[in-house]
Computed example of a mutant assay.
Amino acid sequence: MAPQKDEKNHLPVLGVGPVYVIIIVILTTTCIVLSQMGVLPYLRIRATIAVFHTAGTIFFVAGIWLWVSAAIKERLQDNIIENKLITTGVYSVVRNPIYSAFSFVLTGVLLIYGNLYLFPLSLLYWALLTIMMRATEEKWLLEQFGDEYRDYCKRVNRCIPWFPKAE
């Protein structure tokens, strides 16, 4: 019988990701449906439809690219199991690229849908991600990697690439 790895030797592979993703998907879907039903107000400026569709498509595609780069190209699961802090590739641009990817995709959906009243949801995604990361994964990573993680946080933003850090 092969020895089993102690599951406590590494951080959770999924972290709080599924909870975050489920919350923002449900929120986005609910708001779009309620907007379609007339329960929430709908405001679209006809002259901006093409711009919003283009921007939405860019956000959507960027989100998918970010997810693929973070999860597959960087072998995220393997690195977590091996207790390696990933700071290369897309992780050198943003500390939480998988969560950012879902935020980008759903922001793209909102832009394509085009209801100006729903655009603040993107700010809510960022706020929720910030709160969830500070309360969970950032504490785990700091405990696991100490100064290495602290230095990484000083160099790389949490969820929006190249956005000024408020930490």
Results as ranks from 00 to 15, higher is better:
V93N: 04
V105D: 02
V19A: 13
Y117W: 13
Y125W: 06
K73Y: 13
Q144V: 09
A70C: 05
S122R: 01
L116T: 05
E7T: 08
L121N: 01
A50L: 13
R44Q: 11
T87H: 05
P97R: 03
R150K: 15
E74W: 01
L85Q: 05
R44N: 12
E148H: 10
F163Q: 07
N96R: 04
I58C: 06
R75W: 06
P41N: 07
P12D: 07
S100T: 15
Q36M: 14
F104K: 00
R46S: 10
R150P: 03
I23A: 13
H10N: 11
R158Q: 12
L11T: 05
C153W: 01
Q77W: 10
I86Q: 06
S122F: 12
E74V: 08
D151N: 10
E7R: 09
S100Y: 03
L124S: 09
T87A: 06
Y152K: 05
T29D: 08
Y117M: 10
L76I: 10
I80C: 02
V19R: 09
L118M: 07
S35H: 03
V61F: 08
V93W: 09
A71D: 14
T107Y: 01
A71P: 05
V21C: 07
R44G: 09
I81Q: 09
T130A: 07
R155W: 04
Y125D: 01
L123C: 12
A135H: 08
D6W: 06
N115V: 12
L129K: 02
E167G: 14
T107W: 04
L11G: 04
A62R: 00
E138N: 11
Y20G: 00
Y20C: 03
A70N: 02
D151L: 07
G108T: 00
L43D: 13
V51G: 05
G89L: 06
A166L: 15
M133A: 14
W162E: 11
V16W: 02
L110D: 00
A127M: 14
R134W: 07
F163V: 10
W126A: 12
I64T: 10
T107G: 06
G56R: 02
T54P: 02
L40Q: 05
L124H: 01
K5H: 04
G63L: 05
P12Q: 02
I80D: 00
G108M: 02
V16M: 09
V93D: 02
W65V: 15
F119W: 08
V13L: 10
H53E: 14
K8T: 15
L40N: 09
L66W: 00
N83W: 05
G89T: 08
E138F: 09
D147Y: 09
G146M: 08
I45H: 11
G114A: 05
C153N: 01
V61M: 10
Y42S: 11
D147V: 11
I81G: 03
L121H: 01
M37S: 15
Y20A: 01
E143V: 04
V51L: 13
T107M: 03
I64C: 13
P97C: 02
I131P: 04
E148D: 15
